[in-house]
Design a protein around this nucleic acid. Sequence first.
DNA 1: GTCTATAATTTGATAGAC
DNA 2: GTCTATCAAATTATAGAC
Lengths: 184, 184
Amino acid sequence: MSGKREEILDVSEALIRTSGFNGFSTRDVADAVGIKAASVHYHFPTKADIGVAVTERYTDRFLEALGDPDRFVKDARSAVTLYVDAFRRALVRDGKLCLCAVLGAEIGGLPTEVGQHTRIFFERNIEWLRRALAASSGARAARAKADAMHILAALEGALILSLSLDDRSVFESVGKRLIGLAEH
Amino acid sequence: MSGKREEILDVSEALIRTSGFNGFSTRDVADAVGIKAASVHYHFPTKADIGVAVTERYTDRFLEALGDPDRFVKDARSAVTLYVDAFRRALVRDGKLCLCAVLGAEIGGLPTEVGQHTRIFFERNIEWLRRALAASSGARAARAKADAMHILAALEGALILSLSLDDRSVFESVGKRLIGLAEH
DNA sequence: GTCTATAATTTGATAGAC
DNA sequence: GTCTATCAAATTATAGAC
């Protein structure tokens, strides 16, 4: 059973998304899981290993939830609405930031491998959005990548603003605007 | 002479903007300034005091550089261009994120007072943008606050993406788009 | 796989001399 | 204002028993 391993990742993800990679300790994780710190190190030799595993799992899940980006034929609005929904879940269901917004913000103080996997999250998300927009709005195909970067940046920033100001309407306002822009 | 005090703030700001509030220590600061950790605590009794002072100074300087938001009569493009320039300086001149993007990302793991001052940065920036947009585009006055939140969110996110991906063109792309949107 | 025990280092902070 | 000296606690692990 890899139950404890998954529990360690669950708790670590929640802690990173709340306080950052430098804001949690293996002891915090151990306490929350109900084991000792030494046992955490059995599953993940170093803290960086935890960071990498959390980020890989987060990225895979995030993109799996988005589905096939090529399915939005002539429907950019649906694509962007779905994408905004994915970020809304981070805020509303979890009450937390996107993992990679947090890691990206402290990227200079991260173990190299964790920074690398943070970058991969962004690259894969920009590519997903670019494809979804290219499939759905033929006329603006050339601008699809610029649109993708804009949408991702605005949503990551909107989560930071919403949580800092403790005001979910900031996110909703930005999300609405992005969906509206997708139609023109 | 408050030279050392300012030096401590300079170094602390740079360290926070690179590694986050939990990613630097008073010893790091002392070494960079060329004094001992105990001397840092003479100027700032606690680490939270450093965080508050850094954030207050950063916010005041940022808004001072922006100038009077009411001066953009019928010229939303100039207002947004100037605002984008302010964020570009963080990236190009300093090679770093906005201080409050970093602090906002780890807000759950911050001393309360530091989180409060992070919030103030966002509130003051949204208000500056709202006024600048209201002054410059009468027809869209009702949407000025929504526009303000969108612009701030997109720029904070664009800095995170640009630095994580080590690609300044991400920021430039988003900035260009925001300036373009200001004209419609 | 989990534990106890422990090590080496770092951290935030204080006391008191100069 | 800055230093030396010191501290208690926290942090990231490792060794080895069970």
